[in-house]
Nucleic acid binder design. Structure first.
Lengths: 248, 248
DNA sequence: TCAAAAGTGTTAAAGCTACACCCATGC
DNA sequence: GCATGGGTGTAGCTTTAACACTTTTGA
């Protein structure tokens, strides 16, 4: 009866929060901002903000991402393939007590980006940094840094999504620049999963999966050793067979 | 700056919508309700409703599920193992135009339930039914029934989540009664995926996966033929190795 | 010349698929 | 007996994991 009564609904604020991940110095890192006002003043938090009345959820996330990092999102017009970040919805967090001031429902999004210059604090952000995920979350439970709100949980969910999604999708290339070598892609997997992989078997696997990688034509020796072929991300979005994590 | 200003936020309504799936007569079916008022009066829609000011998102979904079906959710107190439905968050839909009257953000949830007696229309629901998913979505694009709002999209996302999740998790048992046979579990997979599976290999696979099934001690001939062992769902939540869909 | 990373070959183990085959019940 | 579904065995194929080995550069 009153299920959709437009005049009598409880007041909610809707925000987007961003788990922005990249690989720096062989470590999976997340973009964190420091809060300048209460609650949780001085705590590290995920970037985010209110959804505007006239924009969709993913648009709000893309706008916040651009504001914080200057990154554009895959699919934006006038953009080279391989440029910009991958962006997808992660999950929604709406515990009645998650914000002490009012009822806030936050639609978290996950962004995967290649290594970027250190973030520019801009707009309403006091300071920002790339923080190693291991430092933020710790190795065990309740072993990490104390973040604002429920952002530890959101970050953990985002990291787990990224870790599992590169198993069966071609998303790992979102962490790489437009042209990259097989060894660089392997380092992405190793950094995100925190394991080491056999370079020979990895090479065979990724080059043998149709549509995952396409040769870009050149070679590079930027990793040292014998020159390596350069590749771009291919058309494939799904990896078949998947790249499975060891153990687990 | 104004990112969390609690006094100046745009007005949003927050609802939950439910994709409730079951297997009936060898077909994957979804619970649908008929709308009694505009907009989309007379259209079939997913069950759902407003989130109350003092309840969490999953609680709101569990409350709506109980109101529409009488189903309790896994983990509720005083409940036998194997009883009730599996419930998880699916995704959030917040296009500014998705409801013509006002800005509504809907947090969709996915529920998997064993075959139930035909739903009781109760509360504010005019009529309700279990509708075969193939009839609702059709086989190709734009080939199904026209549902209210963006519910075709939500339903399709829920169905795809269920289809892929039974590959690598033990969730298929959520479609079965507390005690079931290997053949009944196989029919669940066949109905959800719309394929047929080799009964011999399927049997070996599910009984050989540790923690998936535990013998319940008896046998039944309710499927005809030789008596089959009865099983309950085991502790395992992850299937390793996974049950992969043929082809795809 | 040497270290380092790229890439190929090979082999044994494990998993999957497609069957043949037997078992235990209801009718 | 005979149809029906339950359950086991097994041969052939594909995939994986581990590691020996060659290639090509920079220092």
């Amino acid at each position: 009866m009153s299920r959709y009564d437009p005049s009598a609904f409880p007041p909610f604020a809707v925000t987007v929060d961003l788990v922005v991940l990249t690989v720096r110095d062989h470590a999976l890192c997340a973009l964190m901002v420091r809060r300048g006002e209460p609650p949780f003043q001085g705590f590290w938090a995920l970037p985010g903000g209110f959804v505007r009345p006239d924009e969709g959820l993913i648009e709000a996330a893309a706008r916040e991402l651009a504001e914080e990092t200057g990154l554009r999102t895959h699919g934006a017009v006038g953009q080279e393939p391989g440029e910009g970040a991958h962006l997808e919805q992660l999950a929604t967090y709406g515990d009645p007590q998650r914000d002490p001031r009012m009822r806030v429902v936050s639609v978290a999004h996950l962004a995967l980006a290649p290594d970027l210059p250190t973030p520019r604090p801009g707009g309403d952000v006091r300071s920002a940094r790339w923080a190693p995920v291991e430092e933020l979350l710790g190795r065990g439970k309740d072993d990490g840094l104390l973040l604002a709100f429920d952002h530890t949980r959101i970050l953990a969910d985002g990291v787990e999504r990224a870790r599992s999604k590169i198993e069966y999708s071609a998303l790992a290339t979102a962490f790489c620049p437009a042209e990259f070598t097989v060894g660089e892609l392997r380092q992405v997997y190793e950094s995100v999963w925190g394991v080491s992989l056999d370079p020979r078997n990895f090479h065979r696997k990724v080059t043998g999966t149709p549509g995952f990688l396409v040769p870009a034509g050149g070679t590079t020796t930027r990793q040292g050793g014998r020159p390596a072929q350069l590749f771009r991300a291919g058309d494939a979005t799904v990896l078949n067979p998947p790249m499975l994590r060891p153990d687990a």
